[in-house]
Computed example of a mutant assay.
Amino acid sequence: MRRTCHEVTAEGIRLRLRVTPKSRREGPQGFVEMPEGGWALKLGINAAPEDGKANAAIVALLAKHLPVAKAAISVAAGAKDRRKLVDIRGRPPELVAALEAWLSPILEYEA
């Protein structure tokens, strides 16, 4: 079963995240099933969840691994929650390809 944590939008993609702040290991850590249905990417970040530091760390990490600038990434929902929806503006095919390449070790492991 293929787990997907994103959906294509008119302006790019929307990514569902379940964030673990103050994580020892930064980056993707698997998938988690959401109570409302669907899957979210479990993402560890080193930053603490205070003063927007965690959200800034999420944006920086995504911009590092996807072909967009930080300005093209925004937290659409869940700014003060571990569950987040993140909008990434850009060309959907390129964003999906880059996301799948970044997540390929997890996708292969959980297949």
Score class of each variant (00 low, 15 high):
M1K: 08
M1R: 10
R2N: 05
R2V: 12
R3V: 02
R3E: 05
T4H: 11
H6D: 00
E7V: 12
T9H: 04
A10F: 04
E11R: 13
E11K: 13
E11M: 03
G12Y: 07
I13G: 00
R14Q: 15
R14W: 02
R14V: 03
L15E: 09
L15G: 10
L15C: 10
R16C: 07
R16W: 15
R18P: 00
V19I: 15
V19Q: 04
V19E: 03
V19P: 03
V19L: 07
T20C: 02
T20Y: 01
P21C: 08
K22D: 11
K22R: 15
S23M: 03
R24K: 11
R25T: 13
Q29S: 14
Q29P: 00
G30L: 07
F31V: 06
E33H: 11
E33F: 05
M34C: 11
M34H: 09
P35V: 07
E36P: 00
E36K: 00
G37W: 01
G38N: 01
K42W: 01
K42P: 00
L43Q: 01
L43T: 01
I45R: 09
I45Y: 03
I45V: 15
N46R: 15
N46I: 02
A47K: 14
A47C: 06
A48I: 03
A48S: 12
A48C: 01
A48D: 05
P49L: 05
P49Y: 04
E50L: 11
E50P: 00
E50N: 03
D51Q: 11
D51K: 14
K53I: 00
K53H: 12
A54C: 08
A54Q: 13
A54G: 14
A57T: 03
A57Y: 08
A57E: 15
A57K: 13
I58R: 04
I58G: 05
V59L: 04
V59G: 04
A60E: 13
A60T: 09
L61D: 08
L62C: 01
L62E: 01
A63I: 10
K64W: 04
K64D: 12
H65D: 04
L66D: 10
L66T: 08
A69L: 12
K70V: 02
K70P: 05
A72E: 13
A72G: 02
S74F: 04
S74L: 10
S74D: 09
S74T: 14
A76V: 12
G78H: 09
G78F: 06
A79L: 11
A79Q: 13
K80S: 10
D81T: 12
R82T: 13
R83T: 07
K84C: 08
K84P: 11
V86D: 06
V86C: 06
D87L: 15
I88Y: 02
I88G: 02
R89Y: 02
G90L: 14
R91V: 07
R91D: 15
P92Q: 10
P92A: 15
P93M: 13
P93D: 10
E94N: 04
E94L: 12
E94R: 12
V96H: 09
V96L: 06
V96M: 06
A97P: 02
A97K: 14
A98E: 07
A98Q: 09
A98R: 10
L99Q: 06
L99K: 05
L99M: 08
L99R: 05
L99V: 03
E100Y: 08
A101M: 06
A101I: 00
W102Q: 07
W102L: 08
W102M: 08
W102A: 09
L103A: 08
S104G: 01
P105D: 01
P105N: 01
I106R: 05
I106M: 10
A111R: 15
